[in-house]
Deep mutational scan, measured.
Amino acid sequence: NQASVVANTLIPINTALTLVMMRSEVVTPVGIPAEDIPRLVSMTVNRAVPLGTTLMPDMVKGYA
């Protein structure tokens, strides 16, 4: 099973992502692959992402 990116904290809308905000976890449904974490750093989220939420491609500006 592939690990996905999961919010390690509440990420407010329009926040630039940092490494400490994200962790990898095997979850269903599958979200952004964990190997993309380095690429996500400094990208911003377009909605509030609660703790434990899987990051989906449409949640990160410029990812999809």
Rank of each mutant, 00 (worst) to 15 (best):
N1V: 15
N1Q: 13
Q2W: 09
S4V: 02
S4E: 01
S4Y: 03
V6R: 04
N8A: 14
T9M: 13
L10V: 13
L10E: 10
I11H: 00
I11C: 02
P12V: 14
I13G: 09
N14L: 06
N14F: 10
N14V: 03
T15I: 06
T15E: 11
T15D: 03
A16G: 13
T18S: 09
T18N: 07
L19Y: 11
L19W: 10
L19P: 14
V20H: 13
M21D: 06
M21K: 04
M21H: 13
M21I: 03
M22N: 00
R23L: 05
R23P: 02
R23G: 07
S24P: 09
S24Y: 14
E25M: 05
E25Q: 10
V27R: 06
V27C: 05
T28Y: 13
T28M: 12
T28V: 14
T28H: 07
P29T: 04
G31S: 02
G31A: 04
I32Y: 01
P33L: 07
P33N: 09
P33Y: 15
P33S: 11
E35N: 12
E35R: 05
E35V: 12
R39M: 09
V41C: 04
V41F: 05
S42V: 03
S42R: 12
M43C: 09
M43Q: 07
T44G: 05
T44D: 05
V45F: 00
V45T: 06
V45I: 07
N46W: 05
R47G: 06
A48R: 10
A48F: 10
P50Q: 09
G52I: 03
T54E: 01
T54I: 07
T54L: 04
L55N: 01
L55V: 06
L55E: 02
L55R: 00
M56T: 15
P57W: 05
P57R: 09
P57K: 09
P57V: 06
D58V: 07
D58Y: 09
D58P: 06
D58S: 12
M59W: 09
M59H: 11
M59G: 03
V60F: 06
K61A: 14
G62V: 04
Y63H: 04
Y63V: 04
Y63T: 03
A64Q: 15
